[in-house]
Design a protein around this nucleic acid. Structure first.
Lengths: 127, 127
DNA sequence: CTGCATCCTTAATGATACTG
DNA sequence: CAGTATCATTAAGGATGCAG
């Protein structure tokens, strides 16, 4: 056939590797942060509070490689590097901001469910 | 204020922990698999090809604890356990199936971007 | 069949020091 | 400032055996 049957439910399908990268907290937060426009490396690190420089650099390189983020380095001293979503990256804005909104919108239900579950099972539980 | 400002971009906000759980490949695939209706443990393991029993059990327990999946055990021999999305879990169907569709829809652009990136930088690169 | 417990391996993340 | 390199730590994942 002309159209390969890309299917994330197939263990060896390349689309699953792609899903694994976008279904990731750091990717989600970075894309959300870049949704309002380009940001410098340091601005991004501040926006995604708690991310380490190494993880941010690693994740940005992956996203650039996959064509989701573009990197613009200005030849200055001190250096300045801007990151922004590519057209492909823009298509991720909606689904990933939706995930972020879900987390904020339903966190209270989730916390309540956890309390309920822990009551039913036993206090010695996870995070 | 009455409404706490839940914000996933704040490192210590509980909503970020919640985002970290749903922005996860296994969670995404399990929710996608359960979108068509309840499945037994073994059916789920087959549906999410490549997942190990341990990871499936661990992830399902987490999802049950967060109120996203409900678990029904029938007192039979051999055992039978059904999993299905709760009403809360249903609200995750759309954003997570969207992520799965994105991975399948844009995988060719992603693969192309990777080739391009690797050409520009050097063949000795990542996965 | 389900799933927990255990052990082991690998991947992700963090801390620090250093360079252009 | 924006990284890279290194090391240390932690979390995720996989394999196996066993119990209800």
């Amino acid at each position: 056939m002309n159209v390969p049957a890309w299917n994330v439910m197939v263990a060896t399908c390349p689309s699953r590797t792609s899903l694994a990268k976008i279904a990731n907290k750091w990717t989600a937060m970075i894309v959300i942060a870049l949704s309002d426009g380009p940001l410098r490396f340091g601005e991004l690190r501040d926006a995604v509070a708690g991310i380490s420089g190494k993880v941010l650099a690693d994740t940005l390189r992956d996203l650039e490689r996959d064509g989701i983020v573009s990197r613009t380095a200005y030849d200055q001293m001190p250096p300045r590097v801007d990151y922004e979503l590519t057209p492909l990256g823009q298509t991720l804005r909606e689904p990933l901001t939706a995930l972020g909104r879900w987390a904020e919108q339903y966190i209270e239900e989730v916390l309540q469910a956890r309390d309920s579950y822990d009551d039913r099972t036993g206090p010695a539980a996870l995070g």
